[in-house]
Design a protein around this nucleic acid. Sequence first.
DNA 1: TTCCAATCTTGTCACTGTCCAGATAAGGCA
DNA 2: TGCCTTATCTGGACAGTGACAAGATTGGAA
Lengths: 202, 202
Amino acid sequence: MTKKAYHHGNLRNALIGAALEILETDGVEGLTLRGVAARAGVSHAAPAHHFPNIKSLLTALCTIGFLRFHDMVEKSCAAAPMDGPSQLRAANAGYLAFAVSQPELFRLMFSTPASDWTDENLCAASLRARAQLAAICAPAADALGLTAPDDRGRLERLVWSCAHGHAHLLIEGRLSAQSPESGSGIMDIAALIFSARPHAKP
Amino acid sequence: MTKKAYHHGNLRNALIGAALEILETDGVEGLTLRGVAARAGVSHAAPAHHFPNIKSLLTALCTIGFLRFHDMVEKSCAAAPMDGPSQLRAANAGYLAFAVSQPELFRLMFSTPASDWTDENLCAASLRARAQLAAICAPAADALGLTAPDDRGRLERLVWSCAHGHAHLLIEGRLSAQSPESGSGIMDIAALIFSARPHAKP
DNA sequence: TTCCAATCTTGTCACTGTCCAGATAAGGCA
DNA sequence: TGCCTTATCTGGACAGTGACAAGATTGGAA
């Protein structure tokens, strides 16, 4: 055990783990390929075989982020009543909770140039989260009498924009004066939506 | 004229100008202190006297961003009818137009760790934009019968979150399938707000 | 005119990502 | 069993980066 094995055996995962730790501690600007290698206990060039460049490492982190994000929203929704407004509130709460609990990862996920968006895994993970959003919005769209795909997409964008904007502004310290649970965002939106009379075309 | 002056005379502004150009061309990751110096035609260490470190340069860019942002929203609102909904729509349009026209600057403005938020000028410029938002939201708050400062703040956050989220998702390429003018964001929000009956407490 | 302070240049350092050649080990094949 | 192909990892190197230090240049005040 005192003698270090030449082959790590599970270096790729070890690197990702180390990178995730460094990410939340020091932020993206503190995340260096050499630092990750050092934390994993390998030489500075060892990551090259698993991640040809730092962008590919960030892409892997980003992918994990979307998976975690999906799970967190799902759990939040599963614990809530099944009616439309409750599901929207739960989704918003999950969105926010993820951003607050792992702000650096959240930042990374939504800073597009940082990662490689031609990567299959990343696209799949991202699309899965996108589909989740659509499913959660469906009851609200039904309640508002929106049948045209365009209108439904518009509602999704509205809900998403609101949740995302709130989460982003919050972790960037722009809403620091208020507590995260102060009930802004989709919660109020939902209340307004469901109290408003459905109107055919804006 | 063939002989280059030892003293630039207006180096600080020249550096900022060069940095703004490089920023929108190559993004923040392509913005280097040495590159900025080269574009301004000075040696690699010349910026040090005006900007002790790269963070202070980014802070200056960020400050300019908030000034431009304020002006853009103001112009958009000035060109619109003075009623509450129109002003909200105009503000949203200005918010979006700024983000789309200078996405890298927008990104920089809302990536907090990039710049120094103890800087007086930056804080002033940011607070000015924040006050502008409050002023634009005031008529909507009045129309909804919101008198308590908490409720008014909540509305502001709601409006801001929605506009910001839409702008951010758009420039990060997450809403690429739809055109920017497709009327999401505050416009729909406003329509819902002004069609909804005012309710005392959610 | 002289001198000081601001400004700019040159040189240097540690650190980074990336590339390269070579060392080491794992597993298939004889 | 022993060899050998391939994947994995090491150590060294290079250009580019931000930051620092020391010296050159200049504008303006005394």
